[in-house]
Simulated scan of single mutants.
Amino acid sequence: MSKVKYYYDSETLSYRKIERKKRTTVKYIALFLMASALFGFFFVILASQFIESPKERELKRELQNMALQYDILNQRMEDAFAALENVEERDNAIYRLYFEANPIPEEQRRAGFGGINRYKKFEGFDNSKLIGESNKRLDILEKAIVVQSKSLDEIKILAADKEKFLQAIPAIQPVNNENLTRMASGYGYRTDPFTKVRKFHYGMDFTAPRGTPIYASGDGVVTRADNSASGYGKHIRIDHGYGYVSLYAHLYKYNVRKNQRVKRGDLIGYVGSTGRSEAPHLHYEVFKDGERINPINFYYGNLSAKEYERLLQKASLENQSLD
């Protein structure tokens, strides 16, 4: 119950009850409500600066979790870059070097993306820098993986070509050691058996009984199997590709025909003494880009180190050739 207030009336010398007008009451109520509203408004504003709502706390946790996930993503990208760098190092220092391919420069592997700012959409947020940098590094990583993948595709092709090349090189002795009587003459100046004049001997002479098997020294295609070349008698020429050609002369008979494809070690003919020959033997030559080269450099395919050393010593002797 509200208190009743009085005032002293000096004219009547008595206390009189104070009567509050309704207008005044409404005014006080309006002022109270306005003050309360203003207080509530400022309280909400101040509270919002210092007190988090459940929704704000949830959003803050989501942002913190997102930042954590980006940190984890960056660490995983670091690990991926480290693994990729290991592959790139082997690619440049081993694979591409072995297959005689130019190394891929670092700026090509780690090239960014020019032109428009593709990361502008990440600007204007609390973690814009983190998000933008993470996406940029991810793009560089993806591009580096594509470059490395293409490089490995190239290495695969080069490896296949290298294997084909290694099989094509005339790399074995065309007559087995057990079938040889001796290695009669090597590459270099020798005495002609007919004129007794010192002249250059462009092949190697392997003496063996008539009918001794002769083997292809590398993969290739038979381009000639005839006796129409002066001095060679019955002879065979094999084109190995890559500029290599091998020649087998003074044969007794052939075991191949022109345009036939042969593999290293295939039986192609037999030792004889046809043409300009003093005794049964195989005259063997190797050409590279049309020039005769020393066949002694190509016997790594079927000779041991000691056998090769003995052959090298015999081939270096300046004696009389058999053709």
Rank of each mutant, 00 (worst) to 15 (best):
D239G: 01
E100C: 09
L267A: 08
K143G: 00
N127P: 02
F200G: 04
T25M: 08
Y202T: 15
S230Q: 14
Y7N: 13
E11T: 14
S128D: 15
Y242Q: 06
F50L: 11
D9E: 13
V4D: 13
Y284E: 03
A249P: 05
Y28E: 15
F298E: 04
K17S: 09
N102F: 08
P213K: 04
S2F: 11
S304P: 00
G265Q: 03
K143M: 03
S228F: 05
R90W: 07
F298Q: 06
R90G: 04
V4G: 04
E285T: 03
E291S: 08
S14G: 10
P105Q: 06
G231P: 09
T181Y: 07
K143I: 01
R292F: 11
R76G: 12
P280H: 00
L158W: 01
E307V: 04
G188R: 01
K17Q: 15
T25A: 07
Y244G: 01
D266T: 00
K162L: 08
N294V: 11
Q313K: 07
K121M: 13
K196L: 14
Q75M: 12
T212K: 00
R190H: 04
A144C: 09
E163P: 00
G272L: 02
K156D: 09
N135T: 05
S228H: 08
G40R: 05
A80S: 12
G132F: 00
K196T: 15
K150G: 08
K129R: 15
G269S: 12
N92F: 00
Y232P: 01
E11M: 07
R137E: 15
T24L: 08
V87G: 01
I268L: 01
N177A: 12
D9A: 04
R257C: 13
L317T: 11
I104K: 00
N127S: 13
T12C: 05
T181C: 05
K306P: 01
L267G: 04
R137P: 00
N294L: 07
R16L: 08
G40T: 11
D91I: 03
M204C: 14
G272H: 02
H283W: 02
S14N: 11
M204N: 12
H283N: 06
S36I: 10
S151C: 02
Q260E: 15
D9C: 08
V146R: 13
L180W: 04
L63A: 14
I131Q: 02
D192M: 03
S246V: 06
A144E: 03
S48T: 11
K253S: 15
F287Q: 14
P103C: 02
I94C: 08
I104H: 00
E133H: 04
D226P: 02
N179C: 05
R237E: 15
L73M: 13
R210N: 10
H281S: 02
N127T: 15
I296M: 12
H240D: 01
E133S: 14
E100A: 10
N319D: 10
Y252N: 15
I238N: 01
E100H: 08
Y98S: 14
A249T: 06
